[in-house]
Nucleic acid binder design. Structure first.
Length: 476
RNA sequence: CGCGGGGUAGAGCAGUUGGCAGCUCGCCAGGCCCAUAACCUGGAGGUCGUCGGUUCAAAUCCGACCCCCGCAACCA
């Protein structure tokens, strides 16, 4: 079977806030998909990065008394370290301040302009710096932005460039119809279809440079910079080298994009219209994930209940954090995080489940000096069942199937009681299928818990398996 | 008539081509003793939000209503 090329990209988090657990979920989900495809033998391009332009960034840097460049460098680093922290398999980290991205965004603009989709218009509107957005009166509460009541609204009265979004209503609807798998899950697809069918308004895609210098200069107009959204979306192809006819771009675009549910419009409508305008192929698929709550409450800075992935990883380890987000939180619906649930799940599934099974089995193997020849992925019915759930992005179900195998193995040991046996051959024959199960489990877990899978594969690759350290010490 | 999600055992959830109501945690009783005080077996516990309809049969399909939670060109 020839290798296929598989491209997946996250959205780029905006660097004005610390990385939070919601984005961790998004990127871990993407990582599982990428690792799964790698396991199948596909060639992978896995992109993430940072979104760094816009007024909010500019003002924040000024407030801190540092140069914008330095502020961006420092902030981008906080996101880049997630790759190691969360054990991600990304091979591309793009920053919207990268030279190649800036050039790509400008070329993208030129193509949209050439196609007649960018025009200049004078307008006046209220603008919330906190949201980086213009606000309509209907969105305001007491004349203030409800999300940022402490920020003064700015009245913008200027001439900006607009993108002819309205021209793409029919084309988008046709595209959706022709690609029934384009947005997953289906209820999000319906949502965006309804939105587009309801009519589209052109939106502004530039700002006056004198008011907002931190952006990419509009080609042919030194007085204007691109609106941050317009510039940022181009990253999904600039990271592949576009507009150059690179091998990466030819081999990997179009790809799969993932995003949080707040980003539905940007990814599935605005960006798709932009691609059509620039004459670039549309994305292959967009996966729209749910949100996380913390102890049942919405996570937000104003509530002060944000949670830093680094803190979690330091406390529990990478794989337990990945496990929680994959098993306990459904892929497309909202989910909840709490330390209490984290620790319960850790003990039940990782310490008492997988960790204990590996410990008791390897201990019996070592103590009885059993030698085995095991085969990786010997039970293809099992791995197929796991992968079938993965094909539907149902990570929780996939892990459930794996854990059923763990339970079966524990049951088998209890029934056969190999620790009572005296004949080495009998012990060997009893432990062999259990050890083989563990190896098969580890094979499948490579997509989910890469570190743990690696440890087990290594431990069970020797003819004489040793007990080794416990994988997940119980939390007491 | 804005859009969407949800309401299933004490808690957290799974379960729609309609067919005996499931999983994890917790609780009770027993077993085992290789293993990380772990593991195995059995048990208690649910009028599947409410009301009505279709059907031999409804958590699942249809209609009305109640209650929670997001979103509303916007935050992952």
């Amino acid at each position: 079977m020839p290798n296929k090329n598989f491209y997946i990209t996250t959205t780029l988090p905006y660097i004005n806030a610390e990385p939070h657990i919601g984005f961790a979920k998004e990127i871990i989900n993407a990582d599982v998909i990428a690792r799964y495809h790698a396991l199948k033998g596909d060639d992978i391009f896995f992109n993430t990065g940072t979104d760094e332009h816009g007024l909010k960034i500019y003002q924040k840097a000024q407030g801190l008394g540092v140069s914008v460049d330095k502020y961006c460098d420092d902030s981008a680093l906080k996101f880049k370290v997630l790759q190691e922290l969360l054990n991600l398999s990304c091979n591309s980290f793009i920053r919207t301040t990268d030279v190649k991205h800036v050039a790509a965004a400008q070329e993208f603009w030129r193509r949209c302009e050439k196609n007649g989709d960018i025009y200049k218009k004078k307008y006046s509107t209220k603008y919330c710096v906190g949201c980086e957005l213009e606000k309509t009166d209907s969105e305001l509460v007491d004349g203030r932005c409800p999300l940022h009541p402490n920020a003064e609204l700015e009245i913008i009265d200027e001439e900006n460039y607009f993108f002819r979004f309205s021209a793409y209503q029919k084309k988008l609807l046709k595209f959706y119809e022709e690609n029934p798998e384009f947005v997953v899950p289906n209820h999000r697809f319906n949502e965006i279809k309804n939105f587009v069918a309801g009519g589209l308004q052109d939106f502004s895609v530039s700002r006056l440079k004198e008011k907002m210098p931190w952006g990419i200069t509009v080609p042919g107009d030194d007085n204007q910079v691109m609106y941050v959204w317009f510039d940022a979306l181009v990253n999904y192809i600039s990271c592949l080298g576009w507009p150059n006819e690179t091998a990466e771009f030819k081999n990997f675009w179009p790809g799969v994009q993932v995003c949080g549910k707040d980003n539905l419009r940007q990814q599935t409508a605005i960006w798709q219209a932009m691609l059509m305008s620039a004459g670039v192929a549309n994305s292959k698929q967009v996966l729209v994930f749910g949100f996380l709550t913390l102890n049942g409450q919405k996570i937000s800075k104003s509530l002060g209940n944000t949670i830093d992935p680094r803190e979690l990883v330091e406390k529990y380890g990478v794989d337990p954090v990945r496990y929680y987000l994959l098993k306990e939180v459904s892929t497309f619906e909202d989910g909840d995080f709490s330390y209490e649930k984290m620790e319960k799940l850790y003990n039940a599934d990782l310490a008492n489940g997988l960790g204990n099974l590996v410990a008791r089995t390897s201990n019996l193997l070592e103590k009885n000096e059993i030698e085995l020849q095991l085969v990786e992925n010997s039970d293809t019915d099992f791995s197929r069942a796991v992968f079938a759930a993965l094909d539907e992005y149902n990570f929780s179900e996939a892990l459930k199937i794996v854990w059923e195998k763990i339970k079966q193995s524990d049951e088998f040991l209890s029934q056969t009681t190999p620790w009572k046996m005296t004949e080495k051959e009998q012990i060997t024959n009893t432990l062999r299928p259990v050890a083989q199960n563990i190896l098969n489990i580890a094979y499948c877990l490579q997509a989910f818990l890469p570190e743990t899978a690696k440890k087990i594969l290594r431990q069970f690759s020797y003819a004489q398996v040793k007990k080794g350290d416990s994988l997940f010490p119980k939390i007491v």
